[in-house]
Design a protein around this nucleic acid. Structure first.
Lengths: 230, 230
DNA sequence: GTCTATAACGAGATAGAC
DNA sequence: GTCTATCTCGTTATAGAC
């Protein structure tokens, strides 16, 4: 019985994976807005109604793709953090930033799915939140580490933002000073601005040596969050 | 004849405007990927073949919408710059940043069209370049002004990026030091990262007081480009 | 219980004949 | 410029295979 259960479970995993893989292919060719259950089924030699055993609706398939993408990016960031564990704060920060950029360049359509324009008619459920938070947690971890050992540089925090910064700190990283949390959230958004501009074509005719430019900008972000006192 | 010509030209302008307006409506409802000449025609009570007198293809309509969006954003930025002409560098910079954010919040779908995920199968032609450059030129203008009068703060430039920074400066703003141009291009991308994160929902459950947070981050970008020596 | 296949719905897009 | 026949889509109900 346990072998039957195992085989069934394996088959289910395999089919689920095949559906998602084909769906990712459609993402690349047609875009998230045009992702169609029927087309996925057709390509897999299945009938569209069969897909409903695996995903209750088209939106659920989209959600699964989104969670997978966030997880894949999060893992890439975590791997980079671990690989640079011995290095200094600036190098660890930059390594994770470059891992984010590398992942985005390797998975442009999945990047567009999670950080690009929202899909019309689709609203991401709360289930995506934990996966979405993973990259951010890696950056928080680096800053926390530096805060506890080497110490962070002094950061400006206008009085106007203090209440909000304290609220964010309480929510995201209570062990960090509000100044650092505010700077980190800004740096987080700005990092993805750099990646999106490169990926979405805004750097055409503007930035040529994009790897070097990104390293430069990432170092600037590290300074912004107080990791580098130079 | 001249009145006929004038009326004709006027009619053509009106119809072109109506087509674009309806197309913008579809952008909001269905997204750029699903923009269809037929649907636009149907909504206007025209027949699809009639639209081809105004736009030779769906891509040309998309291009027109993109240019309009860039121009609208560019004008908003220029207006903000002019309105803050008497103020100090930091205030002028922040005013233009806030104008960009305000425009994006007021025109989310047009923002997504120009700064969001690329539309599958569509490649923006070079005709969009001048309109796309307008916002950037406003920022360059502010930095140039400060450089010529008050002077910019010293900025770091790693040796690795110097050749690229010099190339960018030669291309974009020969009168500015390469350090400033590199910092400005990074700040430009990062500014839109902040706006995109807010607009595309990444700040959900993270940033509450978004206006205050944006002002704070924009001031940080001003420091980054050397506008503020504090 | 778990799956796939058939058929159908209502809505919308599309292509082509006229 | 109009009309119609034919496609696509998401989704459901149902029947039968393993």
């Amino acid at each position: 019985m346990s072998t039957t259960q195992g085989a069934r479970a394996r088959a289910r995993r395999d089919v689920t994976a095949a559906i998602k893989e084909e769906a990712r292919g459609q993402l690349a060719k047609k875009g998230a807005a045009k992702l169609s259950l029927r087309a996925v089924a057709r390509e897999l030699g299945m009938v569209s109604s069969a897909l409903y055993r695996y995903f209750p609706s088209r939106d659920d398939l989209l959600t699964a793709l989104i969670i997978d993408a966030y997880d894949s990016l999060g893992e890439a960031a975590e791997r980079a953090r671990d690989a640079a564990a011995g290095a200094g704060p600036l190098d660890r920060w930059t390594a994770v930033c470059e891992a984010v950029r590398d992942w985005a360049l390797a998975h442009p359509h999945e990047y567009a799915l999670i950080y690009g324009s929202p899909v019309p008619g689709y609203a991401a459920p709360q289930t995506t939140v934990p996966a979405a938070a993973r990259v951010g947690l890696v950056f928080i971890g680096i800053v926390r580490d530096v805060h506890e050992h080497a110490g962070l540089a002094d950061l400006p925090l206008p009085a106007e933002l203090r209440p909000e910064a304290e609220r964010m700190a309480a929510d995201l990283a209570p062990e960090l000073p509000p100044e650092a949390v505010a700077a980190l959230v800004a740096a987080w958004a700005q990092l993805f601005g750099l990646v999106s501009f490169e990926l979405f074509g805004q750097f055409t005719n503007v930035v040529e040596d994009r790897a070097a430019f990104f390293r430069y900008a990432a170092a600037g972000l590290a300074r912004q969050v107080g990791l580098d006192r130079s």
